[in-house]
């Protein structure tokens, strides 16, 4: 108990309080060692204050969720998130193509190959890290979405056999869209392969004009491997 030691002092206090008034104090020497020192009462901290503390703490967390820009070092005051910063930046032509490609990919391809590009084991081959995707010459790569793909294929050193043939997109996607989505997968997930141009897609379309795009003639791995990619 904090006030025990000073109990006898209480009655003396008012007079010592009065003595502190300089004007009322005529005789010096009042401040002896026996003078009492203040003590503190034991009133509890009011519950509303603790509740308010919890509330404010919670508010603080919410505030940081909304106003900290994801703790990203590139988000400054008028912007709320990296996404907003990106949107405010003038988009380069390349950036526009990638953005379009990403949109197409998320809409058309991610169902099987996943947003992560990892596919799903034994069913849909991965794109991330796949040598088919980052091959400098896109001649083989362009053919796959044009007409689809079937049968056994070796990707990243693993053999797998596609249980269902891949859907062809030659009819649904235009040349620029195809080029954009291929460029996207060649530069996403840490890839650094050169972009695919609409002209390249158009050229492949011409070369394979005789092949139906309805899904009746998907490519096989062996067929693709015969297409030269050296030049």
């Amino acid at each position: 108990m904090s006030s025990d030691s000073k109990k006898p002092s209480r009655p003396a206090s008012p007079s010592s309080g009065g003595a502190n008034r300089p004007q009322a104090q005529a005789a010096p020497g009042n401040s002896t060692a026996k003078e009492t020192e203040p003590t503190a009462g034991l009133a509890p901290t009011p519950i509303w204050l603790i509740l308010l503390f919890a509330l404010l703490f919670y508010w603080g967390q919410l505030y940081l969720d909304n106003h900290a820009g994801g703790f990203d070092p590139q988000v400054y005051e008028p912007y709320a998130s990296v996404k907003q910063v990106k949107a405010a930046n003038p988009m380069s032509d390349e950036g526009a193509v990638i953005a379009k490609g990403e949109a197409v990919f998320n809409q058309m391809c991610a169902v099987c190959h996943q947003i992560s590009g990892l596919g799903s084991a034994g069913q849909f081959p991965p794109l991330a890290g796949s040598e088919w995707v980052i091959e400098p010459n896109p001649a083989r790569l362009i053919r796959i979405p044009l007409h689809g793909l079937t049968g056994p294929i070796r990707v990243k050193g693993q053999d797998l056999n596609l249980p269902v043939p891949m859907t062809p997109f030659g009819e649904t996607l235009s040349n620029p869209d195809l080029a954009a989505v291929l460029t996207y997968i060649r530069q996403a997930w840490g890839h650094k392969a050169p972009p695919v141009t609409p002209a390249q897609v158009a050229k492949v379309r011409e070369e394979t004009a005789s092949r139906p795009m309805s899904g009746s003639a998907p490519w096989t791995s062996d067929e693709l491997l015969k297409i030269p990619v050296t030049q």
Binding site: S2, S3, R10, S13, P14, S16, G17, N20, E37, P38, T39, A40, G41, L42, A43, P44, T45, P46, L49
Partner: peptide, 18 residues
């Protein structure tokens, strides 16, 4: 926290609050 209780000669309201 020292001078106020000292001068009025009463304990501080609450130690816990402080």
């Amino acid at each position: 926290f020292y001078f106020i209780p000292k001068i009025i000669g009463q304990p501080l309201h609450s130690r816990y609050l402080a």
